[in-house]
Computed example of a mutant assay.
Amino acid sequence: MTDRPRATLNDVAVSAGVSVATVSRALRDRGEMSADTRSRVLAAAAELGYSAAGQRRGRPRRGTSLLIDLVLGRFHDPYTEEITVGARTTASELGYDLVLTAERDDPADDWPARIHSRGSAGVIVGLIMPTRPQLALMRRASIPVVLIEPPSETSLLLPSLRTTDSAGAAAAARHLVERGARRFIVIGGAPSYRYGRARVDGFLRTIDEVAPRAPRVQTSAEWSAWDARRACARALAELDGEGPIGVFACTDEMAAGAYRAIADSGRTIPADVLVVGFDDVRGARWLRPSLTTIRQPIRELGSAAVRMLAQAASGGEISTEAVVLPTELVERGSTRTLIGG
């Protein structure tokens, strides 16, 4: 038996449908060309196993590249900072370096080719869903992928970590009723990601069980405080009936926007309106009054993903069954009011 012949520049050029000169410039990151062309060349080179040294690239032997990539669509917000801290701390404990890789909003983004070229031990993909071609490239390189809070369900068998979104929202609904709320607003997220839908559904289903005749308004906002302020203001104007209002927002940031809308309407928290968020990022404690919220184990998600990849790098198997970590309600000032009314 003999190995497959080593790929050449010409092989890559034929596969990518470009000239040999273009392949050379793309691989050396020289010259001007479209992002689509560069990405196509890199993907063709990776698929054929081409390297400048004439060696096929793939996942290196353990000990030659102790890297784990964390791929996120954004960094430097409270949620992703917590994910990063959890992943970085555990990676360091296990002897790995964590590489932060940004997924750009560009169909020609070549982050899988970059990861392939450096031979990472594994990839954590957070809050985004990789495409089939991207996953195929990782699979050909034998680089395992773990998803954190995938935004949609998929038929692909991929290891994933998520939290009890529906159960957490159900706890929020019961808490608001117990604390005296008689009318309800739920602010979902747009786009309607999997975890956002689960939170809205869990909240409304529980309200139907424990307060079936209570007036409620379901609204949605972009995943931001500014848009949640607008959505909450509109919902407050539409809400009929009497009695204290309970507001549930799908994130703490959206709850902060609801705070502003409530103040704009002349109401106060928690005397007139009780508010529950979701996440328990640092800013939840800084709101006035401090925000009651559903705590997600965000750092633990990052940590657990690293441990799964380290297990795979040591020859272990990773289950494709979703790992679900529990949420918990953390009561603070935004719902601390007298029961009744």
Rank of each mutant, 00 (worst) to 15 (best):
T2M: 14
T2W: 12
R4T: 11
P5V: 05
A7I: 02
A13D: 02
S15W: 09
A16C: 02
A16P: 01
T22P: 03
R25V: 07
D29L: 06
D29Y: 08
D29V: 05
G31E: 07
E32G: 13
R40E: 10
L42D: 04
A43K: 07
E47A: 11
L48F: 00
A53F: 08
G54V: 08
Q55E: 15
G58A: 05
G58S: 10
R59M: 00
R61W: 01
R61G: 10
R61V: 08
G63R: 06
L66E: 15
L67S: 06
L67M: 09
V71A: 03
V71I: 11
G73A: 09
R74I: 11
F75I: 14
T80H: 13
T89P: 04
T89A: 15
T90V: 14
A91D: 02
L94E: 11
G95Q: 09
V99P: 08
A102C: 13
D106R: 03
A108F: 07
A108N: 10
A108T: 10
D109G: 04
I115V: 15
H116V: 07
H116K: 00
S117E: 10
G119N: 00
G119E: 00
A121H: 01
I124T: 04
R132D: 15
P133N: 02
L135W: 01
S142W: 09
S142M: 11
I143M: 01
P144C: 05
P150L: 01
T154C: 03
L157P: 10
L158A: 07
A167L: 14
A167R: 14
A169R: 03
H175M: 04
R179S: 14
A181Y: 00
P191W: 10
V200G: 04
L204F: 13
R205F: 09
D208L: 00
E209T: 13
E209Q: 15
E209P: 06
V210L: 08
R213L: 13
R213M: 11
R216W: 12
Q218T: 15
S220F: 09
E222Y: 11
W223L: 15
D227M: 08
R229C: 10
E238H: 15
G241C: 13
P244E: 06
I245L: 11
I245G: 04
F248G: 04
A249V: 03
T251K: 07
A256Y: 10
A258H: 02
Y259M: 12
Y259P: 08
Y259E: 09
A261Q: 05
I262Q: 04
I262R: 01
I262A: 05
A263H: 14
S265H: 09
G266F: 08
P270Y: 05
P270H: 09
V275H: 06
G277D: 08
D280I: 03
V281M: 04
G283V: 14
L287P: 03
S290M: 09
L291A: 00
S303N: 06
R307I: 03
M308Y: 04
L309F: 00
A310I: 00
S314C: 12
G315E: 12
G316L: 02
I318N: 06
A322E: 11
V324L: 08
V324W: 06
L325V: 09
L325Q: 08
V330H: 01
V330D: 03
R332E: 02
G333C: 14
G340R: 12
G341Y: 12
G341R: 15
G341S: 15
